[in-house]
Design a binder for these strands. Sequence first.
DNA 1: AACAAATTTTAGAACAGTTCTAAAGAAGGG
DNA 2: CCCTTCTTTAGAACTGTTCTAAAATTTGTT
Lengths: 138, 138
Amino acid sequence: MEKQTDMDVIDRLRAAKLRPTRQRVALAHLLFDGDIDRHITAESLHEEVLATGPRVSLATVYNTLHQFTDAGLLREIMAASGKTYFDTNTADHHHFLDAKNATLIDIPEDQIALAHLPEAPAGQRIARVDVVIRLEDE
Amino acid sequence: MEKQTDMDVIDRLRAAKLRPTRQRVALAHLLFDGDIDRHITAESLHEEVLATGPRVSLATVYNTLHQFTDAGLLREIMAASGKTYFDTNTADHHHFLDAKNATLIDIPEDQIALAHLPEAPAGQRIARVDVVIRLEDE
DNA sequence: AACAAATTTTAGAACAGTTCTAAAGAAGGG
DNA sequence: CCCTTCTTTAGAACTGTTCTAAAATTTGTT
Ligand SMILES: [Mn+2]
Ligand SMILES: [Mn+2]
Ligand SMILES: [Zn+2]
Ligand SMILES: [Zn+2]
C-alpha cells in the first residue's frame, strides 16, 4: 500500500461510491499511505491534515471518518475515555489501551485467544467481541 | 445483602470514610440492597432516587458514584456510546453489551476464558482486562 | 466551455455526558 | 451550642460529537 498516487486513492474512493474531493483525497492519503496500521481520533487527524494538506473542517473529518467506516475502510473503536478511535486495521483484532497517552496498540493476533465464547442471550447474536487490555506504568 | 437497614448502610459508609449523609444513604440503599448486581449510569440512578427518595442533585450522584468507586464498592466501566456505567459487581468479570438498549449484562465467570494473555509492552503492566461482547438482534 | 443537478464542505449552533465552581447547608467533635 | 470540616447544590463550563443550512465543489450534459 506504500505511497499511493492520487489516482490510487481516487480509485479507492470511487469504489466506495464517494466523490474524490480534495479533502477526502488528503485524508485518505494520511490514513492509508504506508503499511502501518493507525488508530486515530477525529481531532488528531484534523490536526494532522491541517499541518500538511488543504484546509479541512473538523465536521468534514467526522463525516469522512464515518463514510470510510461505512465503506469498510475503517473500523470504529470506542475504547474508553469518551473518545472514539478509528482503526485502519479492519481485521478482527484486540487492543492494549495506554490510558496515560490515550493510545491504542494492536495486540498481535497470535498473542491472545478467547478460549470459549459464552452463548448470547435468547433472541440475540454476537455482533463483535472487543478485548481491551488496559496498561499502567510498571 | 438483602434489605439493609439504615444502620447497615451507615456502617458501610463509615468504613469507607464517608459521612453518612441523607443523600449517600439513599443512593447506597438503591445500589446495594438486594442481591442483584446492577449496571447503572449517573443519569439512571439520579432518576431512580428522585422517584423514591430525598432530593439529590445530579452533581451529588456523580460525586457519590466516584467516591464509592474509589472505596472499592463499585467498578467503573466505559463500555461504549459515551456513557460511563458503574457496576455493583466489583469482581473481575466481563460483559455483554446490548447496544440497542444501552444495557450491560454480566457474563457468568465460567462461560468465558481468555486462553493466554499477551505480554504487556516494556515498562508497562496489565492493569485490567475488559471483554465486551456486543450483541445484535437475531 | 457553460450550465444545471447532485453532492460535499463549512462555520457555527446545538447537544450529551461529565466536571467544575463557589456559595449555602449539614455533620460531627468539643 | 459552636466551630470546623465536609458535603451538597445550581448553574456554568467543558469535551467530544452531531446537526443545520448556506456556500462551494464536483460531475454529467450540452
Ligand atoms: Mn459512527
Ligand atoms: Mn471516575
Ligand atoms: Zn487496531
Ligand atoms: Zn458487571
